[in-house]
Design a protein around this nucleic acid. Structure first.
Ligand SMILES: [Mn+2]
Ligand SMILES: [Mn+2]
Ligand SMILES: [Zn+2]
Ligand SMILES: [Zn+2]
Lengths: 153, 153
DNA sequence: CAATAGAATAGAATGATTCTAATATATATT
DNA sequence: AATATATATTAGAATCATTCTATTCTATTG
């Protein structure tokens, strides 16, 4: 079994802590644990409910209210981005870079499209006294049922 | 006072009726009345609540549940489009042509951007067995507070 | 350790939307 | 025109995501 130095074993916590400092948020148990779930590993899209269930499944003692608070505070601090693609529920995105999304309603699934994969020119000026804050592109997908038809004819 | 032939005076109802036939929906009092509010005049963006209040203010006897049912049925039938820009509530759009939106959160206000005012190239192919259903572009706006600052310095 | 500000929590409250089951109306059939 | 049937409307209850509230707890600072 390979020896892993403490420095490296602790990296996830260090990173989670760094995130909290970035947002000027106290490093409480719950925030640290959620931050670790959110930011270690690949970028992800999640809902308050899904993060809550994940936390519970890892034995983290946290309430749904705190998950909502945390997601909102992280979003406020710029550590997360809120993505609104369908009525009813919000997704939170650990990828805060400017980018876009594929969304499939049937699968309830979000997938990133990096900024440079979409070229966009907006011709109209914003109304008077308004500035463009950000541009959101959602490519809505549907299942391709064509192959089913092919089999029948 | 100019004479207006019955044919023309009744046009809004005729149009409202035509819409219902398009969607294979029975022309009930409530649907006719809502259809008239929705489709006569300019294109508009509205919420269930706002349409309900408008209907009430015109003395139309209808329940909020029926307004929700009607908006969903009309959307299903392709007479309306649902626009999701912010968490919490849905907007319905009488403009069903492919187009995009400016959205200002502060004013809770939607404004159309016609399709030809945005040029968009999506490079990535959709995931396997998926087709692009539609593309939604939302240009989020914020108030320009620059002039306030200018006055102070 | 004590004092204090800030955070976590359970549960209540809210707001949008959907559901339910009774009543009413539009359409089809005589 | 009356009847039968399918469909629509309604009030109110129910649901679901989210936020609020008031209490308890904890991180921070000296
Ligand atoms: Mn990342
Ligand atoms: Mn129109
Ligand atoms: Zn993303
Ligand atoms: Zn529109």
């Amino acid at each position: 079994m390979k020896y892993i130095p403490t420095k490296i074993r602790n990296r996830p916590y260090t990173d989670a802590l760094r995130r909290l400092k970035e947002g000027k948020l106290r490093p409480t148990k719950q925030r640290l644990a959620l931050s670790k779930l959110l930011f270690e590993g690949e970028d992800r899209h999640l809902t308050a409910e899904s993060l809550y269930e994940e936390a519970c499944s890892f034995g983290i003692k946290v309430s749904l209210a705190t998950v909502y608070n945390t997601l909102n505070q992280f979003t406020e601090a710029g550590l997360l981005r809120e993505v609104v693609v369908a009525p009813g529920r919000s997704y939170f995105d650990t990828n805060t870079h400017h980018h876009h999304h594929f969304y499939c309603k049937e699968d309830d699934n979000l997938k990133d499209i990096s900024e440079d994969q979409i070229s966009l020119t907006i011709l109209p000026d914003p109304p008077a006294d308004m500035l463009i804050d950000r541009v959101s592109v959602v490519v809505h997908l549907k299942r391709n049922h064509k192959s089913d038809d092919d089999n029948n004819y």
